[in-house]
Amino acid sequence: QSTYFWEGAWRNAQEHVLTALVPEAYLEQLVSIIKSAHNYTNPEIIARRLTVLSSEYASWIHDSLAELQASQS
Protein backbone atom coordinates (compact mmCIF):
# COMPACT_ATOMS: atom_id res chain seq x y z
CA GLN A 1 0.00 0.00 0.00
CA SER A 2 1.49 3.34 -1.03
CA THR A 3 0.59 6.92 -0.18
CA TYR A 4 1.97 9.60 -2.48
CA PHE A 5 1.34 13.13 -3.74
CA TRP A 6 0.40 13.28 -7.43
CA GLU A 7 -1.22 15.99 -9.54
CA GLY A 8 -2.02 18.19 -6.55
CA ALA A 9 -3.57 15.56 -4.29
CA TRP A 10 -2.61 12.80 -1.88
CA ARG A 11 -3.33 9.35 -3.27
CA ASN A 12 -3.38 5.78 -1.99
CA ALA A 13 -2.75 2.77 -4.18
CA GLN A 14 -1.95 -0.90 -3.96
CA GLU A 15 1.46 -1.31 -5.61
CA HIS A 16 3.83 -4.19 -6.27
CA VAL A 17 7.61 -4.31 -6.40
CA LEU A 18 9.38 -5.96 -9.32
CA THR A 19 13.04 -6.85 -8.92
CA ALA A 20 14.89 -7.89 -12.05
CA LEU A 21 18.52 -8.85 -12.52
CA VAL A 22 19.62 -7.89 -16.01
CA PRO A 23 22.93 -7.17 -17.69
CA GLU A 24 23.51 -3.44 -17.99
CA ALA A 25 23.33 -3.78 -21.78
CA TYR A 26 19.63 -4.71 -21.44
CA LEU A 27 18.67 -1.98 -18.96
CA GLU A 28 17.29 0.52 -21.48
CA GLN A 29 15.22 -2.21 -23.12
CA LEU A 30 13.80 -3.28 -19.75
CA VAL A 31 12.94 0.31 -18.81
CA SER A 32 11.16 0.75 -22.14
CA ILE A 33 9.13 -2.44 -21.59
CA ILE A 34 8.14 -1.39 -18.07
CA LYS A 35 7.07 2.09 -19.21
CA SER A 36 5.00 0.74 -22.09
CA ALA A 37 3.24 -1.84 -19.90
CA HIS A 38 2.74 0.28 -16.77
CA ASN A 39 -0.43 2.27 -16.19
CA TYR A 40 1.38 5.07 -14.31
CA THR A 41 2.58 8.14 -16.19
CA ASN A 42 5.75 8.10 -14.13
CA PRO A 43 6.49 4.58 -12.79
CA GLU A 44 9.20 4.28 -10.14
CA ILE A 45 12.21 2.67 -11.80
CA ILE A 46 15.43 2.40 -9.83
CA ALA A 47 18.55 0.70 -11.19
CA ARG A 48 21.57 -0.20 -9.10
CA ARG A 49 24.83 -1.96 -9.68
CA LEU A 50 25.71 -4.91 -7.50
CA THR A 51 28.89 -3.99 -5.69
CA VAL A 52 28.84 -6.20 -2.60
CA LEU A 53 27.53 -9.76 -2.76
CA SER A 54 28.56 -13.23 -1.72
CA SER A 55 30.85 -15.18 -4.01
CA GLU A 56 28.21 -17.90 -4.39
CA TYR A 57 25.56 -15.38 -5.46
CA ALA A 58 28.02 -13.67 -7.83
CA SER A 59 28.77 -17.05 -9.44
CA TRP A 60 25.07 -17.79 -9.84
CA ILE A 61 24.46 -14.41 -11.50
CA HIS A 62 27.45 -14.87 -13.80
CA ASP A 63 26.35 -18.39 -14.80
CA SER A 64 22.72 -17.32 -15.32
CA LEU A 65 23.66 -14.37 -17.54
CA ALA A 66 26.10 -16.52 -19.53
CA GLU A 67 23.33 -19.05 -20.12
CA LEU A 68 20.95 -16.27 -21.18
CA GLN A 69 23.46 -14.87 -23.65
CA ALA A 70 24.20 -18.34 -25.04
CA SER A 71 20.50 -19.02 -25.54
CA GLN A 72 20.14 -15.79 -27.53
CA SER A 73 22.99 -16.66 -29.90
Rank of each mutant, 00 (worst) to 15 (best):
Q1V: 14
Q1H: 14
S2L: 03
S2N: 12
T3A: 12
Y4C: 05
Y4I: 07
F5S: 03
W6G: 03
E7Q: 15
E7F: 04
G8H: 12
G8P: 01
G8N: 10
G8T: 07
A9V: 08
A9E: 15
A9Q: 15
W10N: 07
R11N: 15
N12V: 05
N12A: 05
A13Q: 09
E15W: 04
H16N: 07
H16F: 11
H16L: 12
L18S: 05
T19C: 07
T19S: 08
T19Y: 11
A20F: 04
A20H: 06
A20D: 03
L21W: 11
P23N: 05
P23G: 05
P23Y: 00
E24Y: 07
E24M: 10
A25M: 11
A25E: 15
Y26N: 03
Y26E: 12
L27H: 03
L27A: 14
Q29D: 14
Q29Y: 05
L30P: 02
L30A: 07
L30C: 06
V31A: 03
S32L: 09
S32V: 01
I33M: 03
I33K: 01
I34T: 02
I34G: 00
S36T: 15
A37G: 15
N39C: 09
N39V: 09
Y40T: 04
Y40D: 02
T41D: 15
N42L: 06
N42Y: 04
N42V: 11
P43M: 10
E44W: 11
I45Q: 02
A47H: 00
R48I: 05
L50E: 00
T51F: 00
T51H: 05
T51Y: 00
V52E: 08
V52W: 03
L53P: 01
S54A: 06
S55K: 15
S55Y: 06
E56F: 02
E56Y: 04
Y57M: 12
Y57S: 14
A58Y: 13
A58Q: 12
A58P: 02
I61T: 04
I61R: 01
H62I: 04
D63T: 11
L65F: 10
A66P: 00
A66Y: 01
E67K: 13
L68N: 04
Q69K: 14
Q72E: 13
S73R: 15
S73V: 14
S73N: 14
S73L: 14
